[in-house]
Nucleic acid binder design. Structure first.
Lengths: 123, 123
DNA sequence: CTGTATCCTAGCGGATACTG
DNA sequence: CAGTATCCGCTAGGATACAG
């Protein structure tokens, strides 16, 4: 009935395709964390490097570039450092992402249970 | 998956870690679309295969397995077919994902502009 | 301080063919 | 009808070293 990917018809279809696009970008391993940090205040490059443990400089650079090219964060070089900050666009997206995070925290037991169940079934 | 980050402290931190976890699963290429379809009614395997063009059987199977093991959809074999349906958990998540999709549709021009800009800058 | 350059691994996404 | 089995390319993620 509903013709899918090429021609999304319903709002849910169109929204779901657009959603996947964003989810895949924001779903990159460190994107959300960086967005959450920048929500408080701007950060310098090395500041981010020091703050986020386990994140290599290479990946940090790439993640920042991606977020910047999507217009979610801004990059402003100053004499002392390069400052990254949330844009208005990024700031408007953040609540939605945080909402998913809160959903995940709230339903963690259900998800855990489901995974444990499917785990035990596969044995 | 990875044993996540360093001790998340604030609610935003905790939510952002949990968010990444979910985003990465739901961000799989066909997950949202399948969830959106099942939001209407249950579907059989081949019905999904026929409805979603461009999706191979192998990927469909894997996607369904993942969604099922996360408790977002249910799998019920009947004499005629195997029926996949949204669970309550999945149904509770869907609005949040759709919200992101709507955000994406609404801000598509901004994102486009940002990408075009960064594209032209790199030349 | 702010990155690049190289090299490597694991996993997603897909094409194609086969199975009970 | 509902999947598996094989094989393959691409890219995210990371370790390490070097550079302006």
């Amino acid at each position: 009935m509903s013709p899918v990917l090429p021609l999304p018809v319903t709002l849910a279809d169109r929204a779901s395709c657009a959603a996947t696009d964003i989810l895949r970008r924001v779903g990159e391993k460190w994107s959300v964390l960086i967005l959450a940090l920048l929500a408080d205040r701007p950060y310098g490059f090395n500041e981010l490097d020091r703050t986020v443990h386990g994140l290599s400089r290479r990946i940090l650079t790439r993640t920042l570039r991606t977020l910047e090219s999507d217009g979610l964060i801004s990059r402003r070089p100053t004499p002392e450092r390069v400052e990254y900050a949330l844009t208005d666009l990024g700031r408007s997206l953040l609540p939605l992402v945080i909402a998913i995070g809160e959903w995940a925290v709230e339903h963690a037991p259900d998800i855990e249970a489901a995974r444990a169940l499917s785990q035990s079934e596969s044995l």
